[in-house]
Design a protein around this nucleic acid. Structure first.
Length: 872
RNA sequence: GGGUGGUUAGCUCAGUAGGUUUAGAGCGUUUGCCUUACAAGCAAAAGGUCACUAGUUCGAAUCUAGUACCACCCA
């Protein structure tokens, strides 16, 4: 087989893991638990790159901990994503030519339900195909029965604590989804807009004020004009009345300090039902002014005035503009750039609207949160902690009600003027019986028709998934809580992560997570967010089919995702190439494994290379462990890749693979051992191919790499590694000097007294093996120097016969050499200045001074060398 | 308007509790090579006054301040 056939094997491998229940986890008092939470993806569509990144990181830790002997429990799930899903479903229906306005609530609910089933399936399949090692028996959907009950229970708990209230406020209204949305879901976009200057005449029509507004269509809702009390221009107007153009309604002129004299004309028209600022002013002047709501829920006007009723707000704007112009009310129209709020979900302009909504008081959450948050380890450290504190300080009450049918219904019932809170109709009836001693029937009751914000079910998740709300302090819960690791994008830091911490701190006074790792956001080559609407988004199945799950995993992980990172398909190609490298190394190892070997003598270079690799392997295991402990995942992968490619393949295998006759039992065993260890440390990153290879090697024992144990770090000697490195860099430098003529091995010459020292520093058998040097010849004196190329590395000097060497044109170009000489001369100057500085000699540590002196020597040697090559 | 992060090779980024780095990696570019694991490969080369200015220091890509530009978040 030329390449690893992921299409053929990946599914089989995953099913095998599931069949043996490797990922299932249950309470076991003898084993340490390690729990992870899958940030539940919305059921609005496929998984995207950000998801895959987060889930792959979670999978790496799940697998590592499992291989370290922990009882790993990774709970998967999906989110019903109330408003986002509704919008998706409505879009789909319209696409299929269905008139959305004719659909009953019941029908829509069926559509939503079917959608949720479809996408739950897709998401689960995608999670499985990228290899996530979740415990599927514990799968949860935020709208399933258990979660529903938890949410209702929490609502009632908070309500009884007096933290939930209903109030009229100006809210953000999404005219497509026909619901409120939170401030966080409003996105402000810069836009070209017009400022209309309109005359408002006084009662006697002798005088007028000019009002500048971007929204002339709202004049129907005007109930006052407001000016700054310090504004001298309008002193005479205070407490008088003006007429609203077109509708001719008399409204008062009031004053308020918050009006900015310098914006527009300094006169503000007050439309309290459709502006936050106006509503604030209204509240101060309740006796003087009224509220008029002029919009329907879909953004059309409800005004009973001729042609405007039922027309869209922006069409009315144009009509009003024409009318004002015609009637002489309009002074001018001015181009401006301002920012306008859009709904993140439906991408339509938000309408501010006065509405009765449910709110959650947040103040009481602050203190416990500040206490608990310190216990959570957050990675990367610096960046996000300050953000947390900033958010907490600016907390506002949370609007938790949404006017949708897809979500957790608010458990409030109304009986005449009485409000009853209960988990069901039945219980509500019982409650009334108890309280008011009245027997009533279901239709006497009216249920609150709001559902809860989708984040209201998300913020209780760490406790709810472990069933800690329905059954407080159950065994299962106590075993796994707090959850050990959460990995998520920083963009939902406030929406979700902080709220989870707040809830857990308040509800059970414990942190929800021990560790949180934040990733950046995937962007394309132009630094734009990846999204379907921009078309810079690749479907997951497309990537998986082309590069395989392992390749995609490596591709996505090969970014520095501590910040926002750039993702393109090319990275997956690189990932697949690495997988291919592993596959090819497997072919070599497999051949070695099948060799019939004996216990004969080992050649020295083999003994050396084994000694080197054994030490390096253990040293690198130690380093890897350190990286993973500190959640340097990106670096850990780069590190392993380099180690595998540059050290194991390029050096170790290159030495071992030739001359099969020399491979004996010891070499064979060592090589296989090394390879097994490499497979094990690679497994968490690329689970499929490693499992496949492992199974071929270990057919007799039925165990799989997934449940094998990670190698323990054994003793290593750094000095030995250093000496080998010296040899390898020497070989590299030697190769750098010049290109060798094809397939020829050459001699190098060295002076006798230098040779003994050289032998101490360098492993000469390896030098022969890995370079084009056939032999080192010792000479007492070099005669006829012009025939040789002089070469110097550290203190060792060599001569190479020129006739065997292809000269590198660039390097031997005098211009290039002069440039280099100049560079080093400048460098030397800096060092000399340092060394001449008396204070430096006095104050700097001795080893630093030694180093500088050594640098000086080396560079002098380099310059000398370069000059010599010029002479040649 | 307020806040946060950033500026190192053509591109994407590493970089140390200030001196073991004579500034690194990957990609891209150039050169050589179908060598019995791998051309989806191997071997090598070119490419940088570490944004700018000042300060602290024996010593600054690294610390401090300011400037310029970029990105994101919030109002």
């Amino acid at each position: 087989m030329k390449n690893y056939n992921f299409k053929k094997y990946n599914k089989k491998i995953y099913n095998k893991w599931i069949y043996y229940k490797y990922f299932n986890s249950n309470y076991n008092k003898d084993k340490k638990s390690y729990s992870l939470l899958l940030p539940p993806p919305n059921i609005t569509g496929d998984l995207h790159i950000g998801h895959i990144l987060n889930f792959t990181i979670l999978d790496i830790y799940a697998r590592i901990k499992r291989m370290k002997g922990y009882n790993v429990c990774w709970i998967p799930g999906t989110d019903h994503a109330s408003i986002a899903t509704v919008i998706k479903v409505l879009k789909e229906l319209r696409k299929n030519g269905i008139n959305v306005n004719n659909i009953s609530k019941k029908q829509l609910k069926t559509f939503l339900f079917n959608w949720s089933i479809k996408y739950n399936k897709i998401i689960i399949d995608q999670l499985k195909s990228i290899g996530c090692s979740c415990d599927w028996d514990k799968f949860q959907f935020t709208l399933d029965k258990k979660n529903y009950n938890s949410v209702i229970k929490v609502f009632i708990y908070l309500y009884k604590k007096g933290l939930i209230y209903k109030k009229d406020r100006i809210i953000n209204w999404d005219i497509v989804a026909k619901t409120t949305i939170s401030d966080e879901e409003v996105i402000y976009k810069k836009q070209i807009n017009y400022l209309y200057y309109i005359k408002y005449f006084t009662e006697d029509k002798k005088n007028f004020l000019v009002i500048a507004t971007t929204r002339p269509e709202t004049i129907f809702g005007d109930t006052a004009i407001c000016i700054n009390p310090k504004d001298k221009r309008y002193i005479n107007f205070i407490n008088k009345k003006v007429l609203v153009p077109i509708v001719n309604r008399l409204i008062p002129i009031i004053t308020d300090k918050s009006v900015n004299i310098n914006i527009g004309t300094g006169c503000l028209k007050i439309t309290p039902a459709h502006s936050k600022k106006d509503f604030k002013i209204y509240k101060k002047n309740k006796k003087k002014i009224k509220i008029i709501n002029i919009f329907n829920d879909d953004g059309t006007l409800n005004v009973n005035y001729k042609h405007y009723k039922g027309e869209d707000r922006f069409i009315v704007r144009k009509k009003i503009y024409k009318k004002l112009k015609k009637l002489g009310y309009l002074i001018k129209k001015e181009k401006i750039i301002n920012k306008i709020g859009y709904s993140e979900r439906s991408n339509t302009i938000i309408e501010n609207k006065l509405s009765l909504q449910w709110y959650l008081k947040m103040k009481r959450f602050i203190k416990p949160t500040l206490k608990i948050i310190k216990r959570i380890k957050i990675f990367p450290k610096k960046k996000y902690i300050n953000l947390f504190y900033k958010w907490i300080k600016n907390l506002k009450d949370w609007n938790i009600s949404r006017q949708l049918i897809w979500g957790h219904k608010i458990p409030i019932y109304y009986y005449k003027k009485n409000v009853i809170i209960a988990t069901s109709y039945k219980n509500a009836i019982k409650e009334i019986k108890k309280k008011y001693k009245k027997k009533i029937k279901k239709y006497d009751l009216k249920r609150d028709n709001n559902v809860l914000d989708t984040w209201f079910s998300s913020w209780i998740l760490p406790i709810a998934v472990l069933n800690g709300i329905n059954k407080k302090n159950n065994l299962f819960f106590n075993y796994y809580y707090p959850i050990n690791l959460l990995v998520t994008g920083y963009d939902i830091l406030f929406f979700w992560v902080l709220r989870m911490i707040m809830f857990s701190s308040f509800y059970i006074k414990k942190e929800p997570f021990k560790n949180i790792y934040f990733t950046g956001i995937a962007r394309d080559n132009n630094k734009k967010k990846l999204s379907k609407s921009l078309g810079n988004y690749k479907n997951l199945y497309y990537l998986l089919n082309k590069y395989g799950a392992d390749g995609v995993r490596i591709g996505i992980l090969n970014n520095n995702y501590e910040n926002d990172f750039i993702f393109n398909e090319n990275l997956c190609l690189k990932g697949r190439n690495f997988i291919n490298k592993i596959w090819n190394s497997f072919k070599v190892i497999n051949k070695i494994k099948n060799l019939k070997t004996k216990y004969n003598k080992i050649k020295i270079e083999y003994r050396l290379i084994i000694k080197w690799f054994e030490n390096l392997l253990n040293y690198n295991l130690y380093k890897l462990n350190f990286l993973l402990k500190n959640y340097k995942i990106y670096k850990s992968l780069i590190f392993i890749q380099k180690f595998f490619k540059n050290k194991f393949c390029s050096i170790y295998l290159e030495v071992i693979k030739h001359n099969k006759n020399y491979i004996n039992n010891i070499i064979k065993k060592k090589t296989l051992d090394f390879y097994y260890i490499l497979l094990k440390i690679l497994h968490p990153y690329i689970p499929f191919i490693t499992e496949y290879i492992w199974n071929i090697f270990k057919t007799k024992n039925n165990n799989n790499i997934t449940i094998s144990s990670l190698p323990k770090i054994k003793f290593f000697n750094k000095k030995i590694i250093k000496k080998f490195n010296y040899t390898f860099t020497f070989i590299k430098k030697l190769k750098k000097i010049n290109l060798l003529k094809k397939n020829k091995k050459i001699f190098i010459y060295i002076k006798k007294n230098n040779f003994y020292k050289f032998r101490k520093d360098i492993y000469i058998p390896l030098l022969y093996k890995l370079s084009y040097i056939k032999e080192i010849r010792i000479k007492k004196k070099i005669i006829n120097k012009s025939k040789y190329l002089f070469f110097c590395y550290k203190q060792h000097k060599f001569f190479l016969l020129k006739k065997y060497i292809l000269l590198n044109k660039k390097i031997d170009n005098p211009k290039y050499i002069y440039k280099k000489i100049n560079f080093y001369k400048n460098y030397l100057l800096n060092i000399n200045n340092k060394l001449k500085n008396k204070k430096f000699i006095l104050l700097a540590p001795k080893d630093v001074i030694m180093l500088e002196k050594k640098k000086k020597k080396d560079i002098e040697m380099k310059i000398f060398n370069l000059k010599k090559s010029l002479l040649n």
